[in-house]
Amino acid sequence: MSQTSTISVEKGASLWADAAHRLRRNHAATAAVFVLAIIFLSCLVLPSIDGLIQDPNAQALPKKNQSPSGEHWFGTDHLGRDIFSRVLYGGRISIAVGLITTFVSVTIGICWGAIAGYLRGFVDDLMMRIVDILYAMPFLIVVILLGKSIEPMTTDLTNNTVDLFAGADSSVAEQNATRTWVEPITTLVPLFIAIGALSWLTVSRIVRSQVQNIARQDFIEAARSLGLSHFTILFKHILPNSLGPIIVYTTLTIPGIMLFEATLSFLGLGVRPPNSSWGILIEEGANRMTANPWLLFFPSLFFAATLFALNFLGDGLRDALDPKSSKD
């Protein structure tokens, strides 16, 4: 009798599948994802539902400085405005600043660092010296000056955006309703450009180092021998293999930019009243902490929870994408 033996072949797992498995085992990172999901959905979804929360800019002086209650979950401020709605609407702006500005800075940094690391030689030296010069500049002062210099364009941008969404034949009421949600974003465009245009320096160095290391690998030499163009080699073979550190740095950049926006808003250089961000609310709460502690407590709680969660997520992604750095 002949015996037939079966050989079981274990299916291999990809880098991203292994990283997802390690990330799920990281309880701090998993909890951070859960916290971020709650905060993001609360700030982005709840204000979009008509009649669910109160107008964040509606004043009711007889109800000013009230403590949390069933009518006002987080209390009211010195003008009788609902803190709960202001925290959610302010979170929209703070999250938008963090995400959009990070996207701008990471995109510039990836392109700059990738080109410098791939071409090397004189081009690399020149591009990195420009990065060194920009590093030497006082970041806060340059952002303020750059933001102020391009601020006049926001009025035209706001009007054009309102006409785009409301329509040229819309009524005044419809235009005002559209302007209510458009203006807080368009007025921050100078801030997006100013911060994003100068916060890409670190990521450019990270990408440059990654590109130089990967460009020495055998599969890149094989791609060159096949006659592939430099563009194809760089953007289809080298950069996809550099995504791990880039993703980690991105998650760690978002809280830094949100904190910087809060600093500018605290100094009165960010969001314009009556619109709010977490930085604006924290500044108002700090000035009225003794009379109304809730005005400082709740926006600080949301802001701190978001920053901690993003940092824990960044640490978890670093360990998941780089097993050598894992503590397991």
Rank of each mutant, 00 (worst) to 15 (best):
P293W: 07
D156L: 15
I220R: 06
V203R: 03
V271A: 02
A215C: 12
A114C: 11
L313G: 06
G80W: 07
I246H: 01
F266T: 05
G285I: 02
T30N: 08
D77C: 03
L79Y: 11
N287L: 14
W181N: 01
V207T: 08
S225P: 00
S5A: 14
G270H: 10
R272T: 14
N65V: 05
D156K: 14
W16K: 10
L317P: 04
V203G: 09
F260Y: 11
F235P: 00
I39T: 07
T161M: 14
I257Y: 04
Q66C: 05
D328V: 07
C43A: 14
M1L: 12
V35A: 09
F298T: 02
S277P: 02
F40D: 03
S2D: 14
L310F: 10
G51W: 13
L145T: 03
G316C: 07
G147R: 02
I130A: 11
I144W: 11
S265R: 04
D125W: 06
R25I: 10
R92Y: 01
G12R: 14
T155Y: 15
L198S: 03
F235E: 05
P274Y: 10
P56H: 09
R216L: 15
L252G: 01
A31T: 13
T232H: 13
L146H: 01
D124H: 05
I110W: 03
W73P: 01
T306R: 02
G227H: 08
F235H: 07
E221R: 13
V172M: 13
F165C: 03
I193F: 15
V97I: 15
A262M: 12
E151F: 14
L52V: 14
I233K: 04
Q66T: 10
P152G: 08
V33R: 01
E283H: 11
